[in-house]
Amino acid sequence: MNIMTTQADSFEVEIESRFSWLPIRTGDYASDLAAGRNAGAELLKLAREADNPLLIKGALGQAIEAGEWAAFEIGFTYEISLAAM
Score class of each variant (00 low, 15 high):
residue 63 A to E: 05
residue 27 G to E: 07
residue 81 S to L: 13
residue 21 W to R: 00
residue 72 F to L: 03
residue 30 A to W: 07
residue 73 E to T: 05
residue 37 R to E: 11
residue 39 A to V: 08
residue 41 A to M: 07
residue 47 A to V: 07
residue 12 E to A: 04
residue 40 G to F: 02
residue 75 G to T: 09
residue 65 E to K: 15
residue 9 D to Q: 09
residue 8 A to D: 01
residue 32 D to F: 08
residue 82 L to F: 08
residue 5 T to V: 13
residue 26 T to H: 14
residue 46 L to M: 13
residue 24 I to N: 12
residue 60 L to C: 14
residue 1 M to R: 11
residue 25 R to T: 13
residue 72 F to V: 02
residue 48 R to T: 13
residue 58 G to H: 01
residue 72 F to P: 00
residue 21 W to K: 04
residue 62 Q to H: 13
residue 77 T to C: 15
residue 21 W to F: 15
residue 3 I to Q: 11
residue 29 Y to T: 09
residue 24 I to P: 00
residue 80 I to A: 01
residue 48 R to Q: 14
residue 47 A to F: 07
residue 51 D to H: 10
residue 66 A to H: 15
residue 51 D to W: 04
residue 36 G to D: 06
residue 21 W to D: 04
residue 42 E to L: 14
residue 10 S to E: 05
residue 14 E to R: 13
residue 30 A to N: 10
residue 38 N to C: 09
residue 60 L to P: 01
residue 70 A to G: 08
residue 21 W to N: 05
residue 46 L to K: 12
residue 29 Y to H: 14
residue 11 F to D: 01
residue 23 P to K: 02
residue 42 E to R: 14
residue 5 T to W: 01
residue 11 F to I: 01
residue 77 T to V: 15
residue 39 A to F: 02
residue 47 A to W: 05
residue 64 I to V: 14
residue 25 R to N: 11
residue 28 D to W: 04
residue 59 A to P: 02
residue 56 I to P: 00
residue 10 S to T: 10
residue 48 R to P: 03
residue 2 N to H: 12
residue 61 G to H: 09
residue 69 W to N: 09
